[in-house]
Design a protein around this nucleic acid. Sequence first.
DNA 1: TGCAGTAGCGCAAACGGTTGCGCAGAGGAG
DNA 2: CTCCTCTGCGCAACCGTTTGCGCTACTGCA
Lengths: 331, 331
Amino acid sequence: MTIKELAREIGVSPTTVSRVMHGRGRISSATRQKVLERVREVGYTPNVNAQRLTVGRTHLVALDFGGWHDFLADMFFVELTRGVQDALEAHGYGLLLNEANDVLRRWVKSRAVDGVILAVGGPPDARVPRDIASTGTPCVVIGHHPLEGIPGVGSVVVGLRNGAQEVARKLVACGHRRIGFLGNQEPQDAVLLAFREELKALGVALCAELVIPGGRNPADGERAMRELLMRPDRPTAVFARTDALAAGALRAARRLGISVPTELSLVGHDDVPFAELAEPPLTTVRVNCIELGKVATEILISLLQQPGLCPAAQVVQTALVERESVAPPKQ
Amino acid sequence: MTIKELAREIGVSPTTVSRVMHGRGRISSATRQKVLERVREVGYTPNVNAQRLTVGRTHLVALDFGGWHDFLADMFFVELTRGVQDALEAHGYGLLLNEANDVLRRWVKSRAVDGVILAVGGPPDARVPRDIASTGTPCVVIGHHPLEGIPGVGSVVVGLRNGAQEVARKLVACGHRRIGFLGNQEPQDAVLLAFREELKALGVALCAELVIPGGRNPADGERAMRELLMRPDRPTAVFARTDALAAGALRAARRLGISVPTELSLVGHDDVPFAELAEPPLTTVRVNCIELGKVATEILISLLQQPGLCPAAQVVQTALVERESVAPPKQ
DNA sequence: TGCAGTAGCGCAAACGGTTGCGCAGAGGAG
DNA sequence: CTCCTCTGCGCAACCGTTTGCGCTACTGCA
């Protein structure tokens, strides 16, 4: 059923039908009723492809995960997607998913989407968003580093510092002084920096030899933790950069007969589902990915409504979620 | 850059450009070269909305999660999506995500998608897929029950029986005779039925009083497990319907000072990330959701190529993944 | 009654591609 | 040389909407 056929049935022009459906133009209430009624009767829905062609907008947004394929990303993926999805739906937009970057490029060029949300893992690469925005398609980047000053591209960053600081305060408040850190590969990791800084502000030094460049999977965490715990002057509390590492750390402690949290406090990062299932339930830092997706979407929507805008980077703070893996140190 | 502008630049008609780009029609190799070269130079990409309007197909598929919102579904979600996504991409299709059912309906009616993949949690409701298929849009349903005989709708089911049977065989082979089961709410659950049946075939009875209707979250599992373990004649092995329940069960055992697997064997179901991180790593049944998504997509593609087909339901088997939570019973 | 203003609606041209059909010219056969 | 075939390409219609502009008829006022 096309708008022409429908219009002929009702005895009006396609123009009138279109106007009624959009509430635009001046239509007598009599014909409006007539049209609406018939529309409902036959269940007419405009062909969205024709609409997109004429109007030039698709009301679709692409969500791109540029190679975030590790386990950790999986939970991010689901929450972030949900946040984006819900926010988009509230604004009448649809969500197009894709992975490969060249596919994204084609979609943008072929006008398949109105905007793009880019979730990137590594360091910020301004070229991709700049390219996209230069074609008139706004784009917002979700990542660890802000990206500002490029017209048509927004940015939202995860405020890693906040959670790390909370961890520092919590551990110190508990009475811990010898504190270890299981890191990822990056030496300039924001979490580590913020953690060390906040500890220092509280008068506690993070000893260099208690900072272990862990890795990413539980096995790495177990190895690193074992190394840490075999030391004669072992730490009374350890902050692991990811819950995956913490899972390994937990295992190492158990294998060595060291009880958590009575003999050792442990804090993770990311709040993956494992955290609350662990024994003991793991105190960890939560990254609110739903919020992340929501904020990113809101920025994109505003960019769609006012093109050429140059929005400030927004930040979504991480936060400590306290469970049972932290306690005061034994005397 | 439209096809007309491009054609004028090259000195041919839009028709010729279109034909070159699709490899259709008879074109002299000289002009083909000319066109292709210029296309590459200016980076021309056809407006996909115009294409969709004229051709009548969008090369988009909608993936719908009809209200699957529990934790367990989360991991299903990410794997299933990935399976679908990859398979679609291989065929040159794009993936449109949505949750609400009315939105899906509108997309189908407005010709926004060529096909639909429906992931449903509960009992099969033939109405939705039938409605969708009746508009000429093929549709495949992923669920626990087959759906056959409706033209234009395919179906893929998770073969729950297989994994359950493997569990039965494994436990019996290990020497277990007193076996418990932590179930979900459904009394006619396929896993329970298959498990009981296979045990019986092996000459082992599944005592009714050792079958506990657990629930869904770890707390339920802990309570149910405690109940099971407090019995004087407690089981030597327990099969939990979900890993979430198994997580609670594990906790209950630990609290009661019962060691897994030496004093009690435990098997889960679903292979969520927690399973391999647990202590001990949990033997569980894996649902291959990537495969599930892939198979569903292949069916849909075949349905797109040959409309009106009435494909047989396919089944993706679950399988036991053995880790360290199962051992022979203590004498 | 004449006239301005406005309400209500339709005409037709876009939007940017695809494609059935037809036509010119080249080449081959008779 | 004529006729036929086939190659290579363009014409123009069409896909289903939206929208600027213009037309009619009605209303209110002088």
